[in-house]
């Protein structure tokens, strides 16, 4: 009797472990930080060109879409995604704000002259601490913001599908 219960139990555990591992296999093992950060953080940062201090509450207005893009001139994928930012900047419902990450002014300026400047504002993050306020783990990283909420978070470079998706989300709300 005791043996039967034991064998039944162990087979039950076995099945449970199997299904869990099986389910675990289906999930991707690439970690993406959870969207625990729904609201945008409050911060004050220096602007890139004027070197003026600016507060987050002065940047974001309700009823407008913002695309926050963390970039650096030394980051190769940023170069690749830049064309999508430039084309997205033509949408006048969307304001693109750059956060220049651990960069030096000259290189960043050259980067913008070479590839175009899609940003309506550029903020400077000299030591990478502001990116952490946003919950970012590296460059490039992009956030779609609407009414002080983060609608979408993209880790890594934009591509044409992602750019289209952003375009669609913005246009739907009109």
């Amino acid at each position: 009797m005791k043996n039967k219960i034991l064998s039944f139990l162990s087979i039950l555990i076995l099945i449970f472990v199997f299904t869990t591992f099986y389910k675990g296999l289906e999930k991707s093992n690439i970690y993406e930080p959870q969207n625990s950060l729904k609201k945008i953080p409050e911060f004050s940062m220096m602007t890139f060109f004027e070197s003026k201090e600016i507060y987050s509450k002065d940047i974001f207005r309700d009823n407008d879409f913002y695309l926050i893009n963390i970039w650096a001139s030394w980051c190769v994928p940023c170069r690749d995604e830049h064309q999508f930012l430039v084309s997205l900047s033509k949408n006048n419902r969307l304001e693109i704000i750059g956060i220049n990450y651990k960069d030096n002014y000259k290189n960043a300026e050259r980067f913008l002259i070479e590839l175009g400047n899609p940003y309506s504002k550029i903020l400077v993050d000299k030591d990478g601490t502001k990116a952490i306020e946003w919950g970012a783990i590296g460059v490039p990283e992009t956030f779609l913001v609407y009414e002080n909420k983060i609608l979408k978070k993209i880790i890594g470079p934009l591509n044409s599908e992602l750019a289209e998706e952003i375009e669609r989300i913005v246009n739907e709300k009109i």
């Binding site: 076995l14 199997f18 591992f21 099986y22 675990g24 296999l25 093992n29 690439i30």
Partner: peptide, 24 residues
């Protein structure tokens, strides 16, 4: 590749499934 770690080589779920079934 179910773990996220220093040396996980193969990230092919089919392979994982095979070893898993075999093991069980």
């Amino acid at each position: 590749g179910i773990l996220n770690s220093i040396h996980t080589f193969a990230n092919d779920p089919e392979r994982g499934l095979y070893i898993l079934t075999f093991l069980f």
